[in-house]
């Protein structure tokens, strides 16, 4: 009996946005009297961070500190339409809508600043500190709070903007499947190192090497969380999870987390992650959607590593100890038959 070590690889791509498009999202933005910008959405934060990412997109476009941005979501009485949080679409669709809205608001902001400073709006710049200033000038500047007050009470201007993103719907040709399904594709390659216990059939994932090309990591810590958290889910899919363990039989279905097993802290491998950035023309600051794909490459990488370790090719998920042991038994039976020679 032995612990057998193996290594496996998988490389994948993943589409951004609802398949075939036709999934709009909108954003509205307005400044309060003191220069806080409120983004109104109906988008849902599942914990993935859409509120944080949209605030970053708005702050970057406005040229203001992120502390000047609030996100108000998701109430259908106050927020404009969003198709929903799924299909790796939130960052791409809502991010683009917010950038469009913020760009319109920025235009008004610069117009009012130009009037206040008595200069041309085209000669103004922002640097992310909260000031709008004449390019190259230290003295000729105005803080966003003073500017917003002036816009409201002196100029009667609303510093606001509207944004929408829509990838126009594509209809597949039924005969050939010709279609335009996606806005862009993100990419990943995972190498998995596993150890298989040939006595118990238990597979332990020791290390995962993840290289992801995601257009642009708008928030590198949150992108890392997606990559490494998704790898955990992939590992869980690979080794543990199903609600029908003897599919297609419906028997022995788990009813709670005592029966539906998932990896605990001790099952988490060492992860080495690298992010590549090839900005997407359609993406908000080049970003592609990576919300879903991060669970995908680890599954076949682990399957291939198990084969590398012990010679068992698992064609059915999940790769439970029972399936590994049955595979090992079948290999031994084959070897025994070969050793015995032709009957």
């Amino acid at each position: 009996m032995a612990m057998l070590r193996g290594r496996g690889y998988a490389s994948v791509n993943y589409p951004t946005g609802m398949n075939l498009g036709g999934d709009p999202s909108q954003a509205l933005i307005h400044a309060t009297t003191t220069g806080t910008f409120v983004i109104s959405l109906s988008s849902v934060d599942l914990g993935q961070g859409i509120k944080t990412i949209t605030a970053q997109c708005a702050a970057e476009t406005l040229g203001l500190p992120i502390e000047n941005v609030l996100v108000d979501t998701a109430d259908t009485d106050t927020g404009p339409h969003c198709m929903g949080t799924f299909a790796s679409r939130g960052t791409h669709r809502v991010g683009n809508a917010v950038i469009m809205a913020a760009a319109e608001a920025r235009g008004v902001m610069l117009e009012v600043a130009a009037e206040e400073l008595e200069v041309d709006a085209g000669d103004l710049e922002t640097d992310g500190t909260g000031y709008i200033r004449l390019k190259g000038s230290k003295e000729k500047s105005i803080h966003i709070t003073d500017l917003a007050l002036a816009a409201h009470f002196k100029h009667g201007r609303t510093i606001s903007g509207r944004g929408i993103f829509l990838k126009e719907p594509s209809a597949p040709v039924p005969e050939t499947g010709e279609m335009d399904p996606d806005s862009c594709q993100a990419h990943a390659c995972t190498a998995a190192v596993v150890e298989v216990d040939d006595e118990t059939g238990v597979v332990e994932v020791l290390e995962l090497y993840n290289a992801y090309e995601i257009g642009r990591a708008l928030n590198p810590a949150m992108a890392t969380q997606q990559v490494e958290g998704g790898a955990w889910m992939g590992l869980s899919h690979a080794l543990f999870e199903t609600v029908e363990p003897y599919y297609p039989s419906r028997d022995h279905g788990p009813r709670d987390f005592g029966e539906y097993l998932m990896p605990g802290p001790a099952d988490i491998p060492v992860q080495h992650s690298l992010i590549l950035e090839r900005p997407a023309a359609s993406g908000p600051y080049g970003a592609k959607g990576i919300g879903e794909m991060t669970a995908n490459a680890p599954i076949p990488a682990i399957a291939n590593a198990i084969f590398d370790a012990c010679g068992v090719r698992l064609e059915a998920m999940p790769f439970t100890p029972e399936r590994v042991l049955r595979g090992l038994d079948a290999l031994r039976a084959d070897t025994a038959t070969q050793d015995a020679g032709p009957a």
Partner: peptide, 28 residues
């Protein structure tokens, strides 16, 4: 946790002149 970012692979296609994008901002 922070993954390393490779800036060499598509260097000709990227710009890095950002103040908030590409920065770590705490999740709201």
């Amino acid at each position: 946790r922070l993954a390393a970012i490779d800036k060499s692979s598509f260097a000709a296609e990227r710009e890095d002149d950002f103040t908030v994008i590409g920065s770590v901002v705490r999740r709201s």
